[in-house]
Nucleic acid binder design. Sequence first.
DNA 1: TACATGGTAGACAGGTCGGTCTACTCATGT
DNA 2: ACATGAGTAGACCGACCTGTCTACCATGTA
Lengths: 195, 195
Amino acid sequence: MSDKRLQLIKTAFKLFYLKGVHAVGINEILSESGVAKKTLYHHFSGKEALVSAVLEYRDQRFHDWLKGRLDQAKSGPDKVLTLFDALDDWFNDRVTELLPFHGCFFINVSAEFSEPNNPLHQLCCHHKERIAQLIRAQVDTLGIEPVAVDAFTNALCLLKEGAITLAHVQGDRLAATKAKATALQLLQGNQSVRD
Amino acid sequence: MSDKRLQLIKTAFKLFYLKGVHAVGINEILSESGVAKKTLYHHFSGKEALVSAVLEYRDQRFHDWLKGRLDQAKSGPDKVLTLFDALDDWFNDRVTELLPFHGCFFINVSAEFSEPNNPLHQLCCHHKERIAQLIRAQVDTLGIEPVAVDAFTNALCLLKEGAITLAHVQGDRLAATKAKATALQLLQGNQSVRD
DNA sequence: TACATGGTAGACAGGTCGGTCTACTCATGT
DNA sequence: ACATGAGTAGACCGACCTGTCTACCATGTA
């Protein structure tokens, strides 16, 4: 990957994430990154292709970060509860590699390109599916019945997205903590069924 | 409220909800609504004031609709589970007054105006708080301990927002059903503690 | 040496943006 | 009879948008 190309993607992400895609013009990205317009159109066919590349870039960064965090979890309930500790760090700007929290980039982009068959919207959907797979793998380690794995994975994904929304729209910095408490309650409920 | 003013708000909402605020120009709203530009600037000081009025309009409609649904619930667990039946109808376009589902308008607008101190963002936050109050009132009817009321209200809000996000970004039309199942599990967990 | 490649700076084109303004119509209340 | 206010149509302004293009500069390779 070319130097300038990456530079463009990083700058574009920073601005898109902060202000939204439609609110940021090509020229702003160029002046901020110090790259010439011709170079941009050498690497990307247009703005949409740049947005697409930015989505893939963020998908990779976010996925890697979360996988790293989940891999560190001790076996047992911690395998899933770590998810909410990671979210808590994200919401409260303790993860420098993700930049200051401004909601989920993919939810934000989905909001701007809300048609389900829009390619950018589909990239956002794909990201969410990858993250859900990551969570499912954690739930699998708990050793509960397959039906319960599905249900619990769904619940964790719902709580995760809910926490992101609360943290962003309502500025609720405790959202991850609340979600963790709910997840713990579900976990205990599951156990009592088994006992 | 003037006839033309309401017409502008309705048309603007339809377009903003479908395409996003930044993606829709004043001229499109005018030609779609058949209102003259001068009339728009007679009723609103600018585009931002129009967006603001649209947010208030949608807040009122959504709040009234949800309150109506929740009021119909039978006493007992149904008081809170009705919430997810209502969401299910919304996600699957069985609520004509809310227009075809394109996510939560307030989450979408928050994504485009993500600075917490932006007035439009704050209106979105205010809407979410009003809806949360509605839910809290339902939880109150369950007659559980005050501490549990807080926790359960938080959980329901998280599940609600999560369901909206899943339904929108991932196009998961079953999101409300999944959230309902999780809520039911929490409800049963709460009861087993009391027994 | 000759030439392709990736880069810079920035003028330019065609279009759209939000917003202002003029000139006109029409109903209503005094 | 007439002023007022709400409305229409649409020209116009300056700013900004995406995207193209020219002209030039390095650098590495055949």
